[in-house]
Every structure is written in C-alpha cells, then in structure tokens.
Design a binder for these strands. Structure first.
Lengths: 205, 205, 205, 205
DNA sequence: TATGAATGAGACTTCATTCAT
DNA sequence: TATGAATGAAGTCTCATTCAT
C-alpha cells in the first residue's frame, strides 16, 4: 500500500508481543539480506519468523511499514555511533575529530554491510520522520562539528559545502570500501588514506 | 527468471528488428525513470513501445535481460566519456588529468541522473560480462593513468589503493552532488572542491 | 457461519452483561449505518463497543446472529407502531384505519431510514422465527384489520389479495419516498396521495 | 477497489474475446443468483466460467466492474420493455397505457426475479452513467407519458408527484408480488388489482 | 515472424473465530 | 468470565511468460 507515513499499527507492550515483533523484524532482516528487496514478501517473512501472516499484519499494516521499521532502526544505530564518537573526544584537535568521525562510519558500515546496502536503496524513505532521516541528521552533525572547529579549518572554507562534501566522501567511500574489498588490509589502507584526504582538505596543509 | 547471464536471445539484424529492439529499450528506459524498478513490467514496456509483448520476448528472454541491456549501454557510455577525456589531454600535468577525469564523471552523471540512480541499484549486476563491468573497467583505467603519472604523485603512495580511493571519491561524490543538490552553483562548488581534494591527496601538497 | 437459526448463545441476565450486549448492538448498528454490510466486521464492532472480541463471541455465536438480532429488534419496533396505531383508533371509519396504518409505516421508516435500508437487504432472513418475521406479522395484521372493516370495503374484494397488495403498496412506497425524497414537502405529498390511492382502492369510490 | 466509474478495461472485439466476456458474465450472473453478493468472488466466477482468473481481469478491472456490467445490462433490458410497450400502444386510452406499463414491469421482473432482487441491492450504483440509471430513466419515461395523457388525468394532479408515486407503486408491488408469491394465480390477481389501483388513482373515478 | 489473448503462480491483505492466559 | 493475541483460510489482483493463430 502506497502511503506517506509508515509506522507501527500498535506498539508491542507485553513481553510476548515484543518477542513476536522482534521475530518478525529479524526474519525480515534476514530475508532482506539473503534475497534482497525482490525476494522479500510478507508470506516468507511470516514463515521464517514462525508466525502467522495475520500476526504480522497485527503490527505492521503493510509490507512497506515493515521495511521502513527496519530501516529506521538500522540508521538510528548508525547515528548513535556518531553521537558516541563525538562524546568520547578527549582533545579538541581537528585530526581527532576526523578520525573519530570516520571510525564511526566504519563501525556503522561493519554492523551489517549487506543489510546496509539493501536499505540504502531508494524505497521507503517516506516513513522516516524528519529527525529520523539518517542522512539529514548526520549531515547536520557534521556541519555543527565543523563550526565548532572553525579556527582549525583553512580560511575561506565554505562550511556548508565542506560539510556536504566531507559527508559524501566519508559515507560513500567507506561504504564502497567495506562492500567491495574482501581483504581487510585493503579496507584499512583505504580508510587510512581517507582520513588523510579529509584532514588535508579541511586544513589545506 | 534468475540466471547468471543476461544477454539478448538474438542480435537484431534487419533494419526492422533493430528499430523494434530500440523502441523497446527506449520505452523500458522511460519507465525505469518514471516509475522505478517497482513500476517496471514487461507488459507496460511493450505497450509504451507500441510493440507486442510477444515481440519483446523474441529478443529479450526475460525481464532481467532487458534491464541488463539498458544498464550495459548506459555504463558503456560513461566509460566512453573517460576514454575520450584521456585521449583529449594536451599536457601531462596531473592537475589536467584529475580535472578531466572528474569532468568526465560529471558529464556521465548528467546524461541522465535519474536513470543512473535507478541503474546503480543492486539488481541485475550478473549479466554484465567481466569486461563490461562499468566499475571494473573505469577503475583499471584510473590505475593505469596514475601509473603513467607516477612521477607527479607523492612518494610512497600505494597506487592500487589510491586508484580505488580516488575512484570512489569521485564517482560517489559526483553522484550525490548531482542527485541531491538542486542548485547548480552548489553542485559546481562541490565539484570544484572535489578537484582540490583529489589533487592534494595525490600530490600531498 | 451459515446456519438456519441465528439466536443469542445465552441471554444476558446480570446488569453487567445486559450493558455489554447493548453496547455491542449499538456499535453494530452504528457500523451498519455508517459503513453498510460491506464495512461490517466483528473486530470493528467490538472495538467501537469498547468490548473485547472474545466477549462479543460470548453472546453472539457468529456475525450473522448479531445482525439478525439487530434486524429482529428493528422490525419489532415497527410492528409496535402498527399495533399502537390500531389500538388508538377512535372511530371505526375505514379512512381512519388507512391513515393510521400509513402513518405508522411512515413513523417506522423515519426511526432510522438508513438502518432500515441496510436491514431490508436480503441477508440473514433466516434467523427470524416465524412470528418475528416482520412482513409476515404485519401482513396478518393488515388482513385481520380488513376483515374487521369488511362492511366498508367494496364488494367482491378478495381480502387476502387486497391485504397483500395494500401492504406492498404502503410499505414500499413509503420506503422509497423516505429514502429517495430529500424535500419533506415532496415526501408529504407522496404520502398524502398514497392515502388516497389505498382508500379509493379499498372502497372503490 | 473503490471507484466512481466502473467500466470495461477494453471492449471485446474478436469473436473469441466476446465469447470469453460472455462466459464470464454468465458465470457471474449464475453465482449472483445462486449465492448472492456474499458468495460472489472473482475466483469462483473464473472457475465457473472455465476461464483463468487473469483473463477475467483482462476485461474487468475489478470485481465491482463485473457486477456493474451485469447490473447495467439487466436494467437496460428492463428499460427496453418499457420502450417497446409505449411504442406498441394502439389507442390513446389511459387504461391501455397503464396496463401496458404494468405488463412491461411484470415482463421485466419475470426475466430473472432472483437476479433482479440481488441487483436491486444498493451496491455498485456508481458506474451507471446517468442515462443508464434504471430508475432515473424509467421514471422520466413515466412522467413524459403522463404529460402526454394529461387530458385523461384527474384535474389538479401534480404530475411530478404522481409519476413518482405511480413508479414506486408499480415497480415495488410487482417486484414483491413476483418474488414472494409462488402461485401464479395469486400473482395475476395482485397484478390485476394493481392496474385498477393505478388507473383509479390517476383518473380519480 | 508478429501478435496479443490467455495463463496461473503467487503476492498482499482481511477478518471470522479460537483459545491460552 | 473477560481478554485480545494469534490464526489461517480465503479473496483480490498483478505480471512474467507462453502459445495458438
């Protein structure tokens, strides 16, 4: 069903229903990873979850809501990594910020690279409330951080543009590195280089 | 139909059949852009193309082959831009190479940003023969170019890693800039900064 | 569940259960009016009634029984109007009878024209015990009344046929007039004419 | 699917498709009669028709359209009877008009009384284009006829009201007589009396 | 070779009813 | 007795593909 808001019909409150909803979400995640969006259908999800199709629709009013919910949770987790990273900074050195930021991105992409890839596809962006929107939120984080470190940035850097550029650079490069590189040394090499790229861009040294 | 090789059942040879196959591909492209993968189905394609569904299956043995063919052509065009760019270089300055390379990417993404986005989704990678794989091929181009310009690169740069990194940086950043930024000045600003990023990374100045 | 007898599983005896059964019937009535038979389902009824679906099935063994019960009550009310009308006659003039009879019908149809329309549809006639059958009962009323007024009827009128005819004339015409005519003056005009029709038919004046 | 216009997706043109569409309509009619609206579903219709479900949806875009189509045809046939009746009048006696009109109604109701009853239910009135609307059209016929016979009507008869009343009287009484009376002599008796009722109402004799 | 009607598996979703708590 | 989570049969509709003409 095409909608503009995809949210749970009712929140699971009892222990039992929490378990049920989790089973469904786990099964859905598994199928999304194993078979992609194409192979995803509510009947298979219910079967994998060991739950009746009716129970699935008790909590998720349509297929899209189920996917939206998984997307929401996945990206909430990613945002958490960025928040943590910022909270744990010990110096106010720009390099530490950049490194921490990139490490947070790596951590996020390592949680479940395949799921991440599937969920990064276009579908079902709608149901995400503004503040939940993964890109929007992380991007504004980046911008805020750059403002705070402005004195360490190269002069005449347009911060809005820089924030977007840095965000794209990091997010997409990390994504590709983790998806495409099987050898972890290669991954590490790319990540390491990426840190240099970003830092030298911001400082222009 | 799930396969590992998606290719035309037979090559159109007669003038008439070339026209038919083209009509189908144009219609398919249009639908992919207008309705995405979700809204894509062979019956609608045939109708849009003003062709019978039977004729469609005369040349395309299944839905996936049709999409694969469009993907193949689109990315072949992109590769063409890179080749051209390299052929048209007039100096052997690294800066010119980087600029040309990024401009080629921009040109490629501007051909049809929406189609590009749809085709960049996961589906139907299979049917692309090794040498047709867009990423693989452009990536090896980049590596070859860097080797040729090795004397202008910063010392102890691992060229394999650098090639991949540069490829990801450029490809993904350009993609995001063109898809997400509505104002062309903003696009230009990001592209312009990107050139600096890449060059300063390679030269380490 | 298809049955031939639709009746309550058990009579509500406690104050509490009477209230519960009434809540359910009110909710069911409301839904029948607002959404018609199509939009009627036991889960929604229970929700509207603020009662658990389990409780609903405690008293109504299936969906049909619930509808049958509402139908039964609605038509019992209608029959009440006819009984009252006859009891309140002051003269033994045939005209008074006819007028009173038609007014009773009008009153019945005005109670809830929309509900009446929904309940007049075919469904669930079964569960109505003979003596509850609205048509049967009112019809026999009419016949009895005509017999009592036989001396004022035109000679050689077949009373059985006349009773049925009069019943159909009144019931259906009033129904249509009230359902279809939005202006009350038009309704009144039709009702008024109807009285003349019936009277002149019976008296043949 | 809820819509406001229920019409065929495409007109059957070939012999084969005409046959197909007819098979489907016949099957649908049969099911409507045998099982009512409740028992009506597209799978059963297709099965009865010996046709695949896909073929059904080739011509009927949804269940409702199929029902609307049957309703449309049935009522078109009824209107035909009224038109014929008027065309075949030999005198300009009001009595002949009334008799012919009632006979047309009887004929219409005898075509398929059970189907008529099912189709007279509320559902799916929408798709009928104005001029196809059975009630609207016959009613206006009645009014036109009365105007033409105005000199034979009782003075100060409001023709609009009279037309509606006569229409309700005849339509509903005939309907009930044919549906409810199993003995044909009883039916004939009621019909015969009905003619008197209508005539005496219009002439007030 | 072209056509497009026909097919039918299978996806989504609803809702009457049950039953463990 | 009340609850409401859970069930799953059944209904609507789509769309990739085939095949008779």
């Amino acid at each position: 069903m095409k909608k503009t808001q995809y949210s749970l019909k009712k929140q699971p409150l009892q222990k039992r229903s929490v378990f049920l909803v989790n089973s469904i979400k786990e099964a859905a995640t598994r199928i999304l990873k194993e078979k992609g969006l194409e192979g995803f259908n509510t009947n298979v999800v219910a079967e994998y979850a060991g739950v009746s199709i009716g129970s699935l629709y008790q909590y998720f009013d349509c297929k899209e809501t189920l996917i939206a919910e998984i997307k929401r949770e996945h990206f909430a987790q990613l945002r958490g990594f960025f928040r943590e990273a910022q909270e744990n900074l010990v110096t106010n050195d720009l390099k530490e910020l950049v490194d921490a930021f990139i490490e947070a991105s790596v951590k996020g992409h390592q949680v479940d690279p395949i799921l991440h890839k599937v969920l990064s596809q276009d579908l079902v962006d709608f149901g995400l409330k503004e503040k939940d929107n993964p890109d929007g939120s992380i991007l504004s984080n980046v911008k805020a951080a750059l403002l705070a470190y402005q004195n360490q940035l190269r002069p005449n850097l347009d911060i809005t543009t820089a924030a977007e550029l840095v965000y794209y650079l990091v997010e997409k490069t990390v994504h590709e590195a983790i998806i495409n590189e099987q050898e972890s040394t290669k991954q590490l090499a790319i990540i390491s280089e990426l840190k240099k790229v970003v830092l030298s861009y911001l400082r222009d040294d």
